[in-house]
Computed example of a mutant assay.
Amino acid sequence: MIEMASREIYANGFDEDVQADDQTNGCPECDGRVETNTVETVCEACGLVLAEHAIDHGGEPVYEEETERTGAPLTTSRHDRGLSTTIGRKRDGRGNTLSAKKRRQLGRLCREQKRGRFRSKQERNLSHGLGEVQRVASVLDIDDTLQEQACQLFRSAHSEGLLHGRSIEAVAAASVYAACRCNGRSLQLADVVAAARVGENRVTNAYATLNEELGLPAQPMQPHAYLPRFASNLDVPDAVRRRARTLAERAEETQIVHGASPPGFAAACLYQAAQRADYRLTQAAVADIAGVAANTVRGHRDTLRNELE
């Protein structure tokens, strides 16, 4: 019968540090005591290094205050993802004003840096387009999260070659509109066109191209999504807002909004709610805030009366 070993398997581990009391041999030079730490194995007597670069089992140190050790985070809003350097011309690192000679020197450096920022015309177009996306988003007061998504959409369109034959400004405006549509934010196309530097047809065609080629998860907008902005712009009471939302939700459940303009139907719900609450609100004011004609508001108002009331 063979007697099996009773020692635990991997009792010490294959990569554990060997401490001084486990050493079977001393220093090969002076037979001194050998000590092993997390960095190296060294003789205490003569200082001979026997091994180094041992595995450090300790975790990364945690500091009470967060410190930036890798620079600024990457961003999609710049063509180089924010890795480029910015040269200042007025003050040094300590905040002191620079001399005229130093400012002229830094001005020349800035000029040469701008010339070398782009390696090709494609990068220049990408930088121009991302700047246009940020400009349109700033005019429309869009938050940073949607702005980053719009920049990423423009990057995707640029990499897929969708800018050929199309205006960069149109694709940038369409990217902002698409980012809002994909996140369910009620943003009218007329507002995007007003902030852009191109016509409505170009923005519409660019959005249709993005939606078809990139497969955007854009869902149809519902009338209730426009009510908060319309009610806020018209400064209507809370009771009218709640009644209008109830009308819009009931209309969406009964599917009478199919084929109708969501902003126009939302304006009709708001107007009908104001009429029921005896709040003075004209059709012209509601139609103007929704960007539709007064006849559209009256037509949807009649639909609400006939179907829901």
Rank of each mutant, 00 (worst) to 15 (best):
E68Q: 07
C110Q: 15
T86R: 12
D92C: 04
C27V: 02
V236W: 05
G47C: 00
T67I: 15
S99A: 06
R91V: 01
L210D: 02
R91D: 08
G88M: 11
D278C: 07
H158R: 00
L187W: 01
G165L: 12
G88N: 05
L247Y: 09
V286T: 12
V176D: 04
Y271D: 02
Y207F: 15
R33A: 07
E60R: 08
L74G: 12
D141N: 14
L163G: 03
S6M: 10
V39T: 12
H79F: 15
G59L: 00
V34K: 04
C269R: 04
E65V: 15
G259D: 07
V198E: 05
I55R: 13
V203C: 04
V49Y: 04
Q222S: 13
L234W: 01
N201Q: 15
R119H: 07
I55A: 10
F154V: 05
Q113F: 10
G59S: 08
A54K: 11
M1H: 11
I55Q: 00
R298L: 06
E212L: 11
G59C: 02
A244V: 05
E212H: 14
S159D: 03
E253F: 03
E212R: 15
D235G: 09
V192K: 01
M221P: 03
A195D: 01
E112Y: 13
F265K: 05
E252P: 03
A285C: 05
R119T: 14
G95Q: 08
R185T: 11
R197K: 12
L50G: 00
P228M: 12
L74N: 10
G199T: 06
S175Y: 09
E169N: 08
T246Y: 09
E212A: 15
T86S: 11
L153T: 03
H128W: 13
V62I: 14
G215L: 10
E148G: 12
A11C: 03
L48V: 05
D191E: 14
T75K: 00
M1R: 10
H164G: 07
V198D: 04
G161E: 03
E112M: 11
F14D: 04
A277W: 03
S99G: 12
